[in-house]
C-alpha cells in the first residue's frame, strides 16, 4: 500500500470540504473493496477521508411506497433489518448473499454502489427496483447513476447519503457464483412494479450493470418463467474470461432470469397463504 494522509470526518459537510480541499482524496466507508485495491496498488489515493464516525448515516426508514437506507448501512444491517425483510425481502436476501459474514459486518450499501464493481450485487437491485440515489447535492435515478465499469454519475466532491428503494409487487435476486471467489459470475434481479417490470443484470456486462428490455417486455405481458422461453441475450458486450465465456454468461442470464421470476412468484404465493 502506498502512503496516504488519513482524515476522520466528523460530519458530512466536513467530509465534503475535505474532498474539495485535499488533493487526490478518496472516501472510505467499510473499506472492503478499497483496502484490497490499495494493497494491490490499484488505488493509491494521497488522502483518505473516513466516513466511519459520522452519525446518522445508516438509518433504515420505511415510507409508504419505499424504504430509505442510509449509505453507511452495512450488508449485515440490511440483511437483518425487520423493515427490509418485511417490505422488500428480495433486497434483504441480496444483502445476505454479498461476500461472507465478516465482510458483511463492514461493507456498506453506499460503498458498494459508489465503487460500482461490475460483479457487485447492489447495483442490480438499484436498477431493477428503480431506486433513487440521494447525495449531498441531488437525487439521482439509478438508470442515470451507473455509467460504466467502476464509474458513476457522482461528482468529485459529492457524497451518497442514502438510497431510496421503491417497494415492488414481486421481486427476487438469483446469483450464479464464481466457485472460488464467490462473486457473481451472473446475477439477475427481477422486479414487478404496478406499471412495469424491470430486469437488471450484474456480473456479466463488460460495461457493468444493465437492463434487458426484451425480457422486461415479455414479463410485462405475463410475469411467469414461461414468458421468457425462447428469449436469449446476445453475447455481444458481455464479459468473457477464464471462468466463463461471454456466450456462457449469456446463457446463464436466461436461466437465472427464469429462476428469479419463479422465486418471486413463489414468495408471493407463500405470503398469500399466510
Amino acid at each position: 500500500m502506498y502512503n496516504f494522509i488519513y482524515h476522520r470526518a466528523a460530519g458530512l459537510r466536513q467530509a465534503q470540504h475535505m474532498l474539495g480541499e485535499f488533493d487526490d482524496a478518496k472516501l472510505i466507508a467499510g473499506g472492503q473493496s478499497l483496502l484490497p485495491m490499495m494493497k494491490l496498488r490499484l488505488a493509491a489515493p494521497a488522502n483518505l477521508v473516513d466516513l466511519g464516525k459520522i452519525a446518522g448515516l445508516s438509518d433504515i426508514e420505511p415510507d409508504v411506497r419505499s424504504i430509505s437506507i442510509g449509505a453507511m448501512a452495512t450488508h449485515f444491517e440490511v440483511h437483518n433489518s425487520a423493515v427490509v425483510q418485511e417490505a422488500l425481502p428480495a433486497l434483504a436476501e441480496l444483502a445476505g448473499m454479498i461476500g461472507e459474514p465478516a465482510v458483511r459486518h463492514r461493507g456498506t450499501l453506499g460503498g458498494s454502489i459508489a465503487h460500482n464493481d461490475p460483479t457487485a450485487d447492489y447495483p442490480a437491485a438499484c436498477l431493477a427496483l428503480g431506486a433513487t440515489i440521494i447525495t449531498t447535492e441531488r437525487r439521482i435515478p439509478a438508470d442515470a447513476f451507473f455509467t460504466g465499469l467502476f464509474e458513476t454519475a457522482l461528482m468529485p466532491d459529492e457524497i451518497i447519503t442514502a438510497v431510496s428503494f421503491p417497494l415492488a409487487e414481486k421481486a427476487a435476486y438469483q446469483k450464479f457464483r464464481n466457485p472460488a471467489s464467490r462473486y457473481a459470475m451472473v446475477g439477475v434481479f427481477v422486479a414487478k412494479h404496478a406499471s412495469d417490470v424491470r430486469v437488471a443484470i450484474t456480473g456479466a456486462g463488460a460495461s457493468g450493470v444493465f437492463r434487458v428490455p426484451a425480457f422486461e417486455e415479455a414479463l410485462q405481458g405475463r410475469f411467469s418463467p414461461e414468458a421468457l422461453e425462447g428469449l436469449t441475450v446476445s453475447a455481444d458486450g458481455l464479459t468473457g474470461d477464464l471462468h466463463a465465456s461471454a456466450p456462457y454468461r449469456a446463457h446463464l442470464i436466461g436461466v437465472l432470469a427464469r429462476r428469479a421470476v419463479a422465486a418471486a412468484n413463489e414468495r408471493n404465493d407463500r405470503s398469500d397463504e399466510l
Binding site: Y6, I28, G31, L35, K39, E100, V103, H105, R106
Partner: peptide
Amino acid sequence: DTSQCGSCVVHMDGKAVKSCTVLTLQ
C-alpha cells in the same frame, strides 16, 4: 492478506471482522 481465508478474524464491537482489511485508524 486479501480477506478471503479468515485466519485474521477478530471481533470489533462484538462482530466478526477480517482484521487484514481494517485500517487500525478505522
